[in-house]
Design a protein around this nucleic acid. Structure first.
Lengths: 181, 181
DNA sequence: AATAAATGTTTGGCTACCCAAACTTTCTGT
DNA sequence: ACAGAAAGTTTGGGTAGCCAAACATTTATT
């Protein structure tokens, strides 16, 4: 399978992920979650919710008791938790490290939270932990990065090789005196 | 509009983005791009390609000459270039900074390349530029990060507050002695 | 020029997800 | 108990994108 077709092959769709997360949120906030509560919370019609929730039940992500109260199954809860974690990690990185405006950070994180792999989520978490847990080198790096950010944002030539003109992206290729790992 | 519904509201869909990028690639490689070339290159049927390419023409992202050769319009090319840039930035960050395995880095980058905002793409580029352009603090930070990564990966308690047990994610909340920006 | 091959388009069917509206079931208050 | 409200489901329609297969057109070969 070509890489670009992997886009359709995820553990769960964006929409379904939000159904699951909403059920947990409703149980936290209201104490229960029924079809109509989920529909209201997501601003979709009860008809759409009914169909999607039926399919999520059939897939084993949630269960319904005799009184039509919904709750997540163990796999459903694991999935919802994983996606919430990814969102939290992405928002933190975008907002607190990159200094992207918080609204945009939330939007971008929400779009990709269900798409990034467990591996990428974990590595990002470790990276953030190191960045934010008081290590002197991390502190110094971040301070210097933020301080030089405004200058960097206006760069039209590479700060290392000083070549101008071309797309700034070429600067991501390793330089002789840069870090190549 | 709630944030979660923004997922559907992008400049271009994942599929359409790859049609555009494929046309540029074909013109580079073959010198031209026709409907069937695009279909072959993307491993989809000519029928599907015909329909999608018609809609991309109608949207003004590409043009077709009298001999049915396709090329991107200015807006189409701008979009394709932006998405390729995002992919390049994400792959570089995932692979060369986070040390995610290259295949997974490519898959994840491909899934999100068309979803991240211009703002997020730019900030990530600046971050990478600072990380990779030879600054001493960046070098020291990366070396120390990579060196401590194995230890960090196995953490079950926070290296700052030393609290164990809970989800590691809580460690992303700012600590008293950590960096809070 | 005539046939064969390559190319392009249309049609009907599928999945996913949404809406509106009709319909059914269950709960609630008098 | 029974009417009305609330909750849940079904049906028909729409978008996006894929496939298979039939059909139409264009290009190439003899």
């Amino acid at each position: 399978m070509e890489i670009w077709k992997e886009f359709e092959h995820n553990e769960i769709t964006h929409s379904a992920a939000h159904y699951l997360m909403t059920i947990n949120k409703l149980i936290d906030d209201l104490g229960y979650a029924r079809v109509s509560d989920v529909a209201r919370s997501l601003s979709i019609t009860p008809g759409s919710a009914s169909i999607m929730l039926k399919s999520l039940k059939e897939k084993g992500f949630l269960v319904e008791d005799k009184n039509r109260f919904l709750r997540l199954s163990e796999p459903g809860d694991r999935l919802a938790h994983s996606i919430k974690s990814h969102r939290h990690i992405m928002i933190t990185f975008f907002r607190d490290v990159l200094h992207i405006n918080p609204e945009q950070a939330e939007i971008d994180a929400c779009k990709i939270e269900h798409l990034i792999s467990t591996e990428t989520g974990e590595h990002l978490l470790w990276f953030l932990q190191f960045l934010m847990c008081g290590d002197e080198h991390a502190k110094a790096f971040l301070e210097r990065y933020w301080a030089s950010k405004d200058k960097l944002c206006n760069l039209t030539s590479c700060p290392v090789c000083d070549k101008a003109g071309e797309c700034l992206l070429v600067q991501l290729e390793p330089h002789e005196d840069g870090l190549t790992d």
